[in-house]
Design a protein around this nucleic acid. Sequence first.
DNA 1: AATTATTTTTAGATTTGTCTAAAATAAGAA
DNA 2: TTCTTATTTTAGACAAATCTAAAAATAATT
Lengths: 217, 217
Amino acid sequence: MQSYTEENYLKIIYHLSEISHPVQTNAIAERIQTKAASVTDMIKKLSEKELVNYVKYQGVTLTEKGKLTAINIVRKHRLWEVFLVDKLNFKWDQVHEVAEELEHIQSNLLIERLDEFLDFPKVDPHGDPIPDKHGNFAEMTFVKLSKLKDGDQGTITGVSEHSSAFLKHLEKLGLTLGKRVEIIDVVEFDGSVELLLEHEKLNISREVAKHILITKN
Amino acid sequence: MQSYTEENYLKIIYHLSEISHPVQTNAIAERIQTKAASVTDMIKKLSEKELVNYVKYQGVTLTEKGKLTAINIVRKHRLWEVFLVDKLNFKWDQVHEVAEELEHIQSNLLIERLDEFLDFPKVDPHGDPIPDKHGNFAEMTFVKLSKLKDGDQGTITGVSEHSSAFLKHLEKLGLTLGKRVEIIDVVEFDGSVELLLEHEKLNISREVAKHILITKN
DNA sequence: AATTATTTTTAGATTTGTCTAAAATAAGAA
DNA sequence: TTCTTATTTTAGACAAATCTAAAAATAATT
Ligand SMILES: [Mn+2]
Ligand SMILES: [Mn+2]
Ligand SMILES: [Mn+2]
Ligand SMILES: [Mn+2]
């Protein structure tokens, strides 16, 4: 059994692993809002428990055990987000903070029953995949909207930025999960994108386009 | 904002206040599974924060602020228990431990929405009243089954013992909330109670009868 | 009232997770 | 390769919550 704090470290290391291998001390410190020295301390503890592989000055990687633990926390986080949106009518920009707490509740029965109650969702309110109880993810095929060309069509199936400001902005524009879009033009000057959303013309900045994930179809 | 630990102390002090005023250090230590010395330390801290009134060697009482905090935790605990039973099909003997964790989740929006989602329940799965968001309880009128006389009738509306062993026992006997019972005889020898439950005769020990709460009707 | 028993508090130590400041290592530039 | 900079680790300290053992206060008995 891990502490609340250890779980948070494992989860952050897991997410950062998708970006760099091994994960650097400073990167963890930044994400977890703490100091590098504290991270070193915790890494040693996690290493002691064989949840991470650690080589001094080289950074950490998760062991199989650590990875499974981390994935389970991600599973809980995302299931709770679905619960909050689907059952309690939270907006997609309101769920993350609460899920950060709920993800640490310890009860396998609870999470299996919640999964069932939610009808075994495959993705969370931001389009992120929900691993099953064995830690397996359904394969997802996203393309960044900013990579699309004139005339391309697709459905919004995810976002890669979870800040409330960004999500509220998308909501206001009507760019929510499941909506179909068609690219009219990628403006050469600033990379902004003109697109068609439910027969309405819309222009979004390149910065916004980079964080919208599309499944082409 | 209080820590997880402080919240637990406040809740225990609140519950113990129903039994003795003021609440003794040792009583808290026993309930919270810790040592008297630790309780003294925490009491000082809570007193510092004006959540309890504390006189050395005399024990503690909750201040208005402390009481409201405690009631809010009780509210969350009981709402979560209702959720677990009504929505996730937990048995009434399975909910307490999980609710002990869930009661510490910090989000007013969450708890108000949960309340609504559960259709504003007035009692939890053990018949305990759920305070509203202002801390007000609906008045309950229970009588211990062990206080009833031959011929008395009533409905089971609560239990005053929450151990899994006891609750499972009641479940097995069919003595669950909402069931109507009629006293046939209180056995003089051992105080055990003969009763009628859905046209079936049943004998329960005095010990069991003491923890079943009845609303006469 | 004096003695004994119980309860509570203090003193000092421990564990977990954190911090600052200084030292060590690694990486990049000249 | 040597100097400089960035990153990481150590050393030592601290706050929160806990503990043990001893001292102090209160309550119960004789
Ligand atoms: Mn999230
Ligand atoms: Mn999410
Ligand atoms: Mn309970
Ligand atoms: Mn209950």
